[in-house]
Amino acid sequence: MDLGLSNKVALVLGGGGGLGRVIATTLATEGAKIAVADVSDDALEQVSTQLADIGTDSLALKWDLAGLDDIDSHVAAIEARLGPVDVLVNITGGPPPTPVAGQPQQLWSTQFQSMVLSVIAITDRVLPGMRERGWGRVITSTSSGVVAPIPNLGISNALRSSLLGWSKTLAHEAARDGVTANIVVPGRIGTDRITFLDQAKAQREGRSPEDVAKESTSSIPAGRYGDPTEYADAVAFLASTRASYITGSVLRVDGGLIPSV
């Protein structure tokens, strides 16, 4: 299936991380030009090597999403090197695992700026060009906690949920301009983040990480953690020309984990 992504320019935020890196390389194999943004030099070096092996035009940017003043210069660099952004994949790092009550206001403020406000501001920077060209994709990766809140991930549950309302509203506003906006919800995908959360839970409960992982996978109808490539393939389809009539949606890639309809 031709996804129609040849020579499209994709910006993948968090593109050096577990999900972001696989999304970036998957889009690259479909012929897209890739800009990856990440705060880690090592992660950027690794994903840049993978993109070079694929043979795509790419640009790696060290980018702290909390730095809102840097957005225009970073996007301008992408436009100068690769062209205007056609596909924006919003992935932000997760906050520390905590209860929702009793957290410092500064923690809420810091996480809101990096997890929510950055996504909105970067989208606002690239959206006018998408509308002018009559084609664009805004895909925002969140968490299964936006559908069924996850215990001890209070900040993540709250802040990521705000992106659902934003994305749905954006989809309504931009649809006639050929721009789609969708949310993708990962279940338990086998990344470093899931390993970290399993280890944190094991430490809190005085158990082994292996025991926690076994318990976790037993609750997933598919009986396993998802592979990052399975998640990336779903994102690639939403980015494609084939998905032009899908907007304002929330796509679960969770192996059946989330129990609600």
Rank of each mutant, 00 (worst) to 15 (best):
A175D: 11
T123A: 11
L61M: 13
T123K: 04
H172M: 15
W108M: 01
L44Q: 07
N157P: 00
G187Y: 01
V89K: 08
Q105V: 12
T98G: 04
V22I: 14
A200S: 10
G256P: 01
I246M: 15
I78E: 05
Y231E: 07
A76G: 13
L27Y: 09
A148L: 08
T241W: 15
V185G: 02
I54Q: 13
S141I: 15
D57S: 15
K33I: 10
L19F: 07
V75Q: 08
L88F: 07
P99G: 10
A175C: 10
P97F: 04
K62R: 15
M130L: 13
S118T: 01
K33H: 14
E210I: 00
L82K: 02
G178P: 10
L82V: 10
G16V: 12
V126S: 01
D192L: 08
L163I: 09
V146N: 00
I194S: 03
L127F: 06
G102L: 12
P149L: 00
R188M: 14
V12L: 11
G129P: 03
D69F: 12
A148Q: 15
P84S: 14
G16T: 10
T142D: 00
I122F: 12
R242A: 14
R137E: 05
E30I: 06
L117T: 13
L27N: 06
L197V: 10
G83Q: 09
N157D: 08
L197S: 02
G31R: 04
A52R: 14
A60H: 02
L251S: 07
L170K: 02
S249N: 13
P151R: 01
P149C: 03
G129A: 13
P97W: 07
T123H: 05
F237I: 05
P104A: 05
A24E: 08
F112I: 05
V235Q: 05
G187E: 09
T169G: 09
A158P: 05
A77T: 14
D42K: 14
G18L: 06
K8E: 05
G256V: 04
L51Q: 07
G136E: 10
G14E: 01
S161F: 03
G165N: 09
D198Y: 01
D124L: 11
I54D: 13
Q50N: 13
G20K: 05
A175H: 11
A181F: 04
D41S: 15
D86L: 04
V116Y: 01
D233C: 06
A37H: 06
P209S: 08
E132I: 12
I194P: 02
V75E: 09
G83K: 03
I54L: 14
A202T: 02
I183E: 01
A101N: 13
L170C: 03
G255A: 14
D38F: 05
T25P: 00
G14A: 09
D227S: 12
S244F: 13
E45C: 14
K8T: 12
L107N: 05
P259N: 03
Q106I: 15
P128I: 06
V138P: 03
I150V: 13
V100K: 00
V116R: 08
L153Q: 13
V235W: 04
G20L: 07
D254E: 08
S216F: 03
I155N: 00
T217V: 15
S218R: 13
P104R: 01
I122D: 03
P99T: 06
T49C: 08
D233W: 11
T217F: 05
A232R: 02
D72C: 09
V126M: 06
V75P: 00
